[in-house]
Lab assay of single mutants.
Amino acid sequence: AGLEKQLAIELKVKQGAENMIQTYSNGSTKDRKLLLTAQQMLQDSKTKIDIIRMQLRRALQ
């Protein structure tokens, strides 16, 4: 149950990062740093999601 909860949280983080990227990508240059931060968050989240999914698969075997 813990892994499913972690996965749900990470999927929400990923969605939030995608929303932030959309918001900041057509903003001013001061938003550039926020855009880069959001892109890093998205990448980190995708990595965590992959790891959690692997752990889930392993647990189900």
Rank of each mutant, 00 (worst) to 15 (best):
L56S: 03
D50G: 14
L7G: 12
E10Q: 12
D50S: 14
S28M: 05
A59V: 11
A59E: 09
K46C: 02
L42F: 08
A1F: 10
K5P: 02
I9F: 08
R32C: 09
K48T: 02
L60A: 09
M54S: 14
Q22C: 01
L35D: 00
L60R: 14
D31L: 15
K46R: 07
K5G: 11
V13P: 04
M54E: 09
K33E: 04
K12I: 02
G27T: 10
L34I: 06
I49W: 04
T23K: 15
L60P: 08
N26L: 04
A8R: 09
K12M: 05
S45N: 00
L42E: 02
S45Y: 01
A59N: 10
L36D: 13
I52W: 14
K46W: 04
K33Y: 01
K46E: 02
L34C: 04
K33M: 04
Q40S: 04
Q15M: 13
V13M: 12
L60M: 09
I21Y: 04
R32P: 07
Y24M: 10
Q55S: 10
I51Y: 10
N26W: 01
E4R: 05
L60I: 08
G16D: 11
Q55H: 08
L36R: 14
R58Y: 05
D44R: 15
Q15P: 15
N19Q: 12
K5T: 11
L11V: 11
K30A: 04
D31A: 15
I52S: 02
L60E: 12
S25Q: 11
L60Y: 15
L36P: 08
E4I: 10
K48Q: 01
G2N: 15
Q61G: 09
L7Q: 11
G27Q: 07
T37F: 13
K33R: 07
E4L: 10
G2M: 12
M20K: 10
N19Y: 02
L3Y: 06
L42Y: 06
Q39I: 05
G27S: 12
I51L: 11
Y24E: 13
R58P: 03
Q39H: 04
A1W: 05
G2A: 04
Q43M: 11
M41Q: 09
N26G: 11
T47D: 10
Q43W: 07
I49D: 02
Q39V: 03
Q55K: 15
I49S: 01
M41V: 08
K46M: 09
M41E: 02
D50K: 15
T29N: 08
E18H: 02
K30S: 03
R58T: 09
A1T: 13
Q22Y: 04
Y24G: 14
Q40N: 09
I52H: 09
E18Y: 05
N19D: 07
V13C: 00
L60W: 12
L11S: 12
G2L: 07
A59T: 05
S45T: 13
M54H: 09
R32T: 12
M54N: 11
T47K: 13
G2Y: 10
G27V: 06
A59F: 12
G2R: 10
A8D: 10
L36A: 14
M54T: 11
K5H: 13
L35G: 01
R57K: 13
L35E: 00
N19A: 12
G16W: 05
T29L: 06
Q39M: 05
D44F: 14
L7C: 04
A17W: 13
S45W: 15
N26A: 11
Y24S: 14
I21Q: 13
Q55L: 01
L36T: 13
Q55G: 12
Q22N: 09
V13Q: 13
L35F: 06
Q39D: 08
G16H: 13
T47S: 14
Q39T: 02
E18K: 10
G2S: 11
A17V: 09
K46Q: 07
R32N: 11
I9D: 12
E18I: 05
T37G: 10
I9E: 15
L42K: 01
L60G: 13
K33F: 02
D31G: 15
K14C: 04
L7E: 13
K14D: 02
N26T: 11
I9M: 11
M41I: 14
R57C: 01
Q40D: 00
A1N: 09
Q40H: 04
D50Q: 08
A38Y: 01
T47Q: 07
G2W: 09
S25A: 11
E10I: 05
Q55V: 04
R53K: 14
N26P: 04
K48E: 00
K5I: 03
A59Y: 10
E18P: 08
T37H: 14
K48H: 05
Q39K: 12
L3F: 08
L3S: 12
T37M: 12
Q43S: 09
E10R: 06
N26S: 11
L42A: 01
M41P: 00
N19R: 13
N26C: 07
L56Q: 07
L11G: 14
N26I: 00
K12A: 04
G16F: 10
L3G: 10
K30M: 00
Q15S: 14
K12D: 05
L34N: 03
K46H: 01
Q15K: 05
I51Q: 12
K30R: 08
R57P: 01
Q6R: 11
E10T: 04
K5R: 07
R57G: 05
N19M: 07
I21C: 09
L3C: 06
V13S: 08
A8F: 03
L34F: 12
S45A: 15
T29G: 11
T47H: 09
T37W: 15
M20R: 03
S28E: 05
E4M: 03
N19T: 07
M41H: 06
Q39C: 00
L7R: 06
D44K: 15
R58L: 03
Q43I: 04
S28C: 08
Q43T: 08
M54G: 14
R57T: 04
S25G: 10
L11Y: 09
S28D: 03
M20H: 10
L11M: 13
I49G: 00
K14N: 02
I51F: 08
I51T: 13
D31H: 14
L56G: 09
K30H: 03
A17D: 05
L36K: 14
Q61S: 14
G27A: 07
I9P: 13
Q39F: 03
L34S: 04
R58A: 06
E18M: 04
R53T: 11
K33V: 00
R53E: 02
G16E: 14
A17K: 12
R57A: 09
T47E: 13
E10K: 10
E4W: 14
R57V: 05
M54I: 08
R58G: 11
D50L: 01
G16Y: 14
R53G: 03
E10S: 06
E10W: 14
A38H: 00
I21F: 05
A17H: 05
G27E: 11
L3E: 14
K14E: 09
L60C: 10
K33L: 01
D50H: 14
K48W: 03
K33W: 03
Q6K: 04
V13L: 07
E4H: 05
V13K: 15
A59R: 09
M41S: 02
Q61M: 12
R53P: 00
K48G: 00
N19K: 13
L35Q: 05
K5M: 05
K14V: 04
R32M: 03
D31C: 15
M54K: 15
T47Y: 05
K12V: 01
S28L: 07
K12R: 10
L11T: 13
R58D: 07
R58N: 11
M20G: 04
L11H: 05
I51E: 12
K33I: 00
Q61A: 14
E10C: 05
R32Y: 05
A59P: 06
Q61W: 15
Q22K: 07
L34V: 05
Q22I: 06
K46D: 01
E4T: 07
T29H: 13
L3N: 12
Q6A: 13
L36F: 11
D50V: 02
K12F: 01
R32L: 03
Q6L: 12
I51K: 15
Q55I: 03
I52G: 02
M54R: 14
I49A: 01
G16M: 14
Q61N: 09
T37E: 08
D31K: 15
R58W: 03
L36Q: 12
G27Y: 01
M54F: 04
A1R: 14
S25H: 11
E18N: 12
L42S: 00
I49V: 05
M54Y: 05
K5A: 06
K12G: 09
R32D: 06
L56F: 09
K12N: 02
K33S: 10
